[in-house]
Structures are given as C-alpha cells and as structure tokens.
Design a protein around this nucleic acid. Structure first.
Lengths: 167, 167
DNA sequence: CAATAATAATTTGTGTTGATAAAATATATG
DNA sequence: CATATATTTTATCAACACAAATTATTATTG
C-alpha cells in the first residue's frame, strides 16, 4: 500500500509538471499572437464547442456578462470571431470563430504539439499503447469531475462575484 | 504505422483535455483566492524554486522588469512574499514566499489534486505503474524541451517586447 | 389581449491590474 | 572615473472586471 501512494504522488507531480510546461508555452503564445490570457481562453472554448451564447461563455469563464461583452468586442475587432443574432430568440447572440480565429487556434499550440508528436513518434507501439491507456484513465477521472461539479448552475450564476479587494 | 499516428494524436488530445480541465480549475482558484493569473503564476514559480532574483523572475515570465515590480508590490502587499536585499550584491533583491504565500499555494490546487488522488487510488497497482511510466515519458519529452529551448537567453531578453496593438 | 415580469445582451461609469518606456537610484566592475 | 547591471519610480495606456442602468425581446399573468 505504501508503494501505491508513492506512485499516485508521482503521477500527480508529473501532471503538475506537464501543466507548468504547457502554461508557460501558453504564455509565450499570448505574446506571439498579441492575445491576452482571457482572450486566448475564449478562443479555446469556442474551438471545443461553438456556436455559444454570450451568457454561456460568461458562465463558463466565471465572468460578468459585461466583462464578456468587452472581451468579445476586442476579439471581434481582431476578426477572430463573429456575432450572429439568433432567429428563434432575438435576444440571444451566438458566437462563432471565424476562419481566422480557427487558424489561430490551430497554429498556436503547434510548438508543444510538434514537440510532443515528434517525441511520441520515437516510442514503440507498445509504449504508446500504455501511455494512451494511462492518459485516458486520467481524462476519465478529471472528466467525471467535469460534468457534475456545479450541475445545473442555478441561482448564483453571475451573482455579483465578490470584487477583488486589495491592500 | 497508421495505428501509431492515431495513438499519438489521441494522446496529444488527451493531454489537451487534461490541460483544459486544469486551466479551468486554475481559473476558479484565481477567483477564490482573489489572485489574478499572473499573480498566481508568480507564486507557483516561487514554489518551484526560491529565493529568486527579480530579474530572473521577469525573464522566466517574459515580463519587463517594471511589470515584475508591480506584480511583486501587489503580492507583497498581500503578505504572500517578501523581498530581501542580497548581501553579496546590494543591487539584487531576492524574492521569497512567506508562510502565508506557501500555504496558499499548498491549498489552492487541492481541488483537482484531491480529485486526482482519490481517482487514482481506486486503480490497481499495475494500472498505476502503467500510468506512471507513461507520464514520465511525456514529462521527459516536454522536459527535454524545457532545457535547451532558448538556452542562454542572451540579448533579446526583456527587449522592448512589442506593445500590444489593437483595432 | 394588455400589462407586467423575466431574460439576454449591451452601454455607461469606475476602478484595478498588467504592460511597457524612459528616467532615476544604487551598486558593482573595468 | 566610466560603464554596466539590478531594481525601482514615474508616466501612460490597454485590458480586465464589475455594478447599475438600458434596450430589446420573450414569457406570464391578470
């Protein structure tokens, strides 16, 4: 049982390291693309699933709707996404990536991605199979969490998130 | 050979998913701790290695020294880190986490961490061994990159990084 | 059906943070 | 002494973040 907990700790630590490398890379990308963290974050979310309503995006990012509008304005000005008013409900606005925005997302993580790909390609099929299986289990663990954590997201959504106080 | 590339793609995709979950979590933490992304980023770097010189921190985060000073001011005001002027070279200032800053870092990633730990603990020893081996290989791939990428970081460091232009 | 309430997005107003340049200060090194 | 280095100060601006009010639309209810 001791060995097991050590292995778990090691895995968690590895994940943390991977995360740090990726975060650092992400940060470089922000510089390279002239996008800020939150902006890149919007793009990534849209890459996952789009179109999305403005309110859904705000919820997903834990932001006040007004903040979201500002972010969208800037990204739209850069031609990375476009707004489309819904036909069914003329109050809602759908957000979509433009071709340009899509390309950006495709290009941006290339650095790490290429590194990973070329590194992985040097491994044997069996090694890849092991890694793949392991990753899927980790994803399952995290993914399981991704669904139920704040289920229906009732009341407190976009509740006046406590203002950041300093000093 | 076809299967191999598919597996590689799958692994890369899994890593991307893990990264997204962790980023989202990180974002929640920012809200909870009343810290911003860059601020939390400083804490994490210091957790990895401290004390660090102001200039080293700036390099590490690709920030202008003046930006770094501002960040440090705010974190110092919150009592999360402290400055200490070097004895050898009275120009340099060392940055260290305070107890409070250390505790914050310890507490903050607990959410995902606990989730991961409890999830992993349900796996068998063999499964853990596989995952562990796989993770280490990924870390090795990324780690190999972490060292040589911009080796000595000569001239262009903190060069007047192009100002973000909009519209 | 008309008045009212609720919802979705935006506008307006205000403040903080992040980011840089340029200059200043202090110290070290040739 | 002159030059380089490490940090800080000053000044400036964009970006982020929120509250409160506004507009447009949909849903409810009397």
């Amino acid at each position: 049982m001791k060995l097991k907990s050590i292995m778990v700790a090691g895995i968690v630590d590895d994940i943390r390291r991977i995360f740090q490398v990726l975060t650092e890379q992400s940060r470089k990308i922000e510089h390279k693309t002239n996008l800020t963290g939150p902006q890149l974050w919007v793009i990534k979310i849209l890459k996952e699933k789009s179109p999305m309503k403005v309110s859904d995006l705000a919820r997903r990012m834990y932001l006040h709707p007004a903040t979201m509008v500002g972010l969208l304005d800037r990204l739209e000005a850069k031609g990375l996404l476009k707004r489309t008013r819904s036909e069914n409900d003329r109050r809602v606005v759908f957000i979509d990536l433009t071709v340009q925005g899509c390309e950006l997302e495709i290009n941006s993580p290339e650095v790490v991605q290429n590194l990973l790909v070329s590194g992985l390609e040097n491994l044997t099929g069996q090694e890849l199979k092991n890694i793949s299986g392991g990753m899927e289990q980790v994803v399952a663990i995290l993914g399981a969490k991704d669904i139920p954590p704040q289920l229906i997201m009732s009341a407190e959504i976009n509740a006046p998130k406590r203002r950041r106080k300093i000093g």
